[in-house]
């Protein structure tokens, strides 16, 4: 991994009896897009707040860019841009005024700030509305303006908390493309939290799955699936023409016989006229050959690789067995 930019060491956060983050350790490398995936209330936002020094960890150490966030939040915030979930702007000010204000809070003089704000507004595609008051902005526009707001301090790290929630699919796509472009152009490290698997899967180099304050799994999508799935990696769906003219009829019994002979097959079932074969290896080719050889009329074959979605759902349903 590249040099670490965010390091969390055994951090915990307790609210009374409730443990929001439980003994979490995590390292994120420079130039990486890391996805924090987890349902609402799993401790993602709390972890992010601790990285920015906006709340103090009950135990453990948080380092961003090598600086302790708890004791030196100002230095960290100089280098880290944070886009909160459902970011707010001053409604009675224009988009440009809002950005200039942020820039000046970062110590950039007004003239330079205005120039920079205009560039960034163009970058996120809001030039047409830069002099409109942000009170009239849609959620998608606010989120894009939020990204410009984050970029105005030339950050080394960007932390995006649920940036895609509540935006329409087109808006999400534009937003995520923008995020990837940023990393590619400026080498900014990005931490993105979301409960939506699709969005995370699309852009992130590595993913950490979060549940009840614990990191359940971490890695890129391939290694996550390899690590987590011990059974049923492939689902093969088959359909055959069983009409009278076709002759021989393909039955579930045939598959059950086959399963008895092939150790790769875990289970077979029939659903809506399709046979479903769950196997630990890709046996679709073998299966189709066999069916053809025996004179059945195969007319449908679909192979599903179990993606991270299955892992995610599995974890969400309380499957903690795969952790570690």
């Amino acid at each position: 991994m590249a040099e670490p930019i965010i390091q969390l060491q055994n951090i915990s956060k307790k609210y009374g009896d409730f443990t929001a983050v439980d003994n979490l350790s995590l390292t994120i490398g420079k130039g990486e897009i890391f996805g924090l995936l987890g349902p609402n209330g799993s401790g993602k936002s709390t972890t992010i707040l601790m990285m920015l020094g906006l709340t103090d960890p009950s135990a453990g150490e948080v380092k961003v860019c090598g600086i302790d966030s708890t004791s030196h939040p100002i230095e960290v915030k100089r280098k880290v841009g944070y886009l909160a979930e459902d970011v707010g702007f001053y409604d009675d000010q224009t988009a440009l005024e809002n950005l200039v204000y942020s820039a000046m809070l970062n110590g950039i003089p007004r003239k330079e700030a205005t120039k920079k704000a205009e560039e960034l507004i163009e970058r996120v595609g809001l030039t047409g509305v830069k002099n409109k008051k942000t009170g009239k902005f849609s959620k998608g526009m606010r989120q894009r303006l939020g990204l410009a707001d984050v970029l105005i301090k030339d950050p080394e790290v960007i932390i995006l908390d649920e940036p895609t929630s509540g935006i329409d699919p087109k808006g999400v796509q534009d937003f995520l493309n923008l995020v990837v472009e940023l990393r590619d152009e400026h080498g900014i490290s990005i931490l993105l939290s979301s409960h939506d698997l699709q969005h995370v899967q699309q852009v992130c180099d590595r993913i950490g799955i979060f549940l009840e304050g614990k990191l359940m799994a971490i890695g890129d999508i391939r290694s996550l699936s390899e690590k987590l799935l011990t059974s049923g990696r492939y689902l093969i769906e088959l359909g055959a023409d069983n009409s009278r003219e076709a002759g021989k009829k393909l039955t579930l019994g045939w598959f059950q016989n086959l399963a008895a002979n092939m150790s790769e097959i875990d289970s077979v079932s029939e659903e809506n006229g399709l046979f479903k074969v769950l196997s630990s290896e890709d046996i679709s080719l073998v299966l189709s050959k066999k069916i053809m050889e025996e004179g059945y009329n195969l007319n449908f074959l679909n192979k599903k690789e179990f993606g991270i979605e299955a892992i995610y759902n599995h974890l969400m349903e309380g499957g903690t067995a795969y952790a570690n």
Binding site: L52, L54, I74, E75, K77, R78, V80, G81, Y82, A84, D86, V87, G88, F89, Y90, D91, S102, L105, N106, G107, G146, D149, K153
Partner: peptide
């Protein structure tokens, strides 16, 4: 009001005390 508008967290994520 700043808290409810979401501007407080934005302002406080800037490098200010």
């Amino acid at each position: 009001s700043e808290q409810n508008k979401g501007t407080l967290s934005r302002v406080l994520s800037q490098p200010i005390y």
